[in-house]
Design a protein around this nucleic acid. Sequence first.
RNA 1: GGCGGCAUCGCCAAGCGGCCAAGGCAAUGGAUUGCAAAUCCAUCACCCCCGGUUCGAAUCCGGGUGCCGCCUCCA
Length: 474
Amino acid sequence: MTDLYIYNTLSRNREKFVPLKDGVATIYTCGPTVYSQAQIGNLRAFVSYDVLVKTLALFGFKVIHVMNLTDVDDKTIRASRAEGVELGDLTQRYIDIFFRDLDKLNIRRASEYPRATAHIPAMVALVSKLKDRGHTYESGGSTYFRISSFSGYGKLSGMDSAGLKPGARLDKDEYEKEDASDFVLWKGWKEEDGDVFWETEAGKGRPGWHIECSAMSMQYLGETVDIHGGGIDLIFPHHENEIAQSEAATGKKFVRYWVHNGWLLSDGRKMSKSLGNYHVLADVEKMGFNPLDLRYFFLTNHYRQQFNFTREGLDAAAKARQRVVDFHSRLGETGWAGGAGDAGGEAGKRLAEFSEALSDDLNTPKALVALHMLMAAVNRIENRGGLTASGAAAVKKAVESMDAVLGLLPGGREGALAPEEQELLDLRRDARARKDFKLSDTLRDRLLKMGIAVEDTPSGQRWKRADAGKQQIG
RNA sequence: GGCGGCAUCGCCAAGCGGCCAAGGCAAUGGAUUGCAAAUCCAUCACCCCCGGUUCGAAUCCGGGUGCCGCCUCCA
C-alpha cells in the first residue's frame, strides 16, 4: 500500500500521514450548529470528512472519529426563543434532520457525536485549568482568554491581532475585553439567555463557542489528536483559538494535521438566505435529484477547492452517477460466458490508480477518472462478448472497493418491484414476444412515468428505477 | 488595510518542468436496436495577458487583469 498524503494547513504543505499511534488515526471534525437545517455547503464539508475517514480506512487505519454537535450558542438560543420552544426541543429537531441527511448522503456514522450541553463540566474544568495557568481574566461576569499570554497565537492562520481590520464592529462584549482579539471562554448569563445557563465555578452562564471543541476533543481523543477538520472559514478565529486554549492548558501540541475544506458557492456567491441562493438537501431532492447525485457532484471537485453549486453541474453529476449505478448492477447479472479480455487485470490496475489518486490529498476528481476508465474498458470487453463470469465478479468487487470511499451506489434502496409493476413488465415482455410493438411502447411509457425505465437487450428486457422527470425548482 | 484561494475545451475538472494537455457532462457523425434506451467507434483545447528563467513551462519567477473568500460565534 502506498503512503497517504494530506495537506496540512499548519505547514501549508502536503505531508505524509503518520498517526501518533501506529495503525490508529484519531480525527475530530467540527459538526453542525443545530439551529436550522444544514445547507448544502455544510453537507459538502461533511461529505469531505467522510471521504477522509473512508480513505484512512482504505489505507488500513483504524479510525476513531468524533464530531461535535453545537447545541448551545447565540443562534440556537435565539432560534428557540423566537419559536418559543425549549432549547433542547429545538436542537433535537435539527439533530434528527442532520442524521437523516447523513444517511441520505451515504455518510458513515462517526464513533461519537458529543453534544456541547452534555459536556459542560469538562469545559469548566478546562477553563479553570487555564485560569490556574494565568491565561484568563474575568470581566463583566465572563471569563476571557488573553491571547497575549500565548506566544504561538496566529501560527495556523498567519494572522495576529495587528492584522485585524481596524474599526470592525464591536458588540457589547468587546468593551469588556482588554484586547479586541481576546475571546470568551465562559459567557456570563444575560437577560436574553432566558433559562439557558449553568451554575458552575466559572459562574452562572454558558460556554463560549471555541471551548467546546477543545474540551470534547481532549476528552474523547486525548490531548493531542491526529487530524482536526473544518471549513476554511473556521481557520480564523475558531481553530486559532482552539489551539491557543488547548495548548496553553496542556503544553502539548493540540492537533497534528489541520484539514480544511473550501467553500461551496451558489450562483458564484457565498450562500446566504438574503441572497436567495441558499439551498438545503430537500431543495435538491425537490429538483428531482437523488441526494447521492449531490454527493457525486461534490466529489467532482477537490475538497480544498472553492466551487460553485449549479443546476448544470448537478445534472452532469446525476448522469455520470447513473452510469456508475447501471454499470454496477449490470455486473451483478448472471450469464457472462465470454472468453476473452482481461477484465480482472483491468480491475486491479484501475483500483491501484484509484487509491493512488486518493493518496494524493484525496484527489477525488482523479479517483473518479479511474472508475470511468474501468467502466469504459469493461464495457468494451462486454460489447465484444468477452466478459467472463469471473471477470465480471472481479470488476464488481473492484467497483465496490472504490465505492467504499465514493459512496455512490444506492445500497439496497432500489427496492423490489411492486406486483402491479411486475405485471406491466410481464405484459410488455409478452407483447414484444408477439411483436406487438405498439402495446410494448405504450407500456414502456407508462412504466417510465411510474419511475421505471425499461431497456431491451438481446437477452430480454431489463429495468431500473429512474426519475420520471426532473422539475425546475420554484 | 492585513491574510488566503482561483483563472486549462460550450459547462465541470486532472495536471506539481519533458511521450500526441486525463476524465465527466453537452455536441456532431457512425455501429447496434422493431423504435428507443444502454453500450461501443470516431470527431471536439496549445492552457487570462505581458515579461523572465530553462535545451524544454499550462506547470518555476516577476508584473498585470479578473473573480471569490477570511479578518463579524457561517462548513
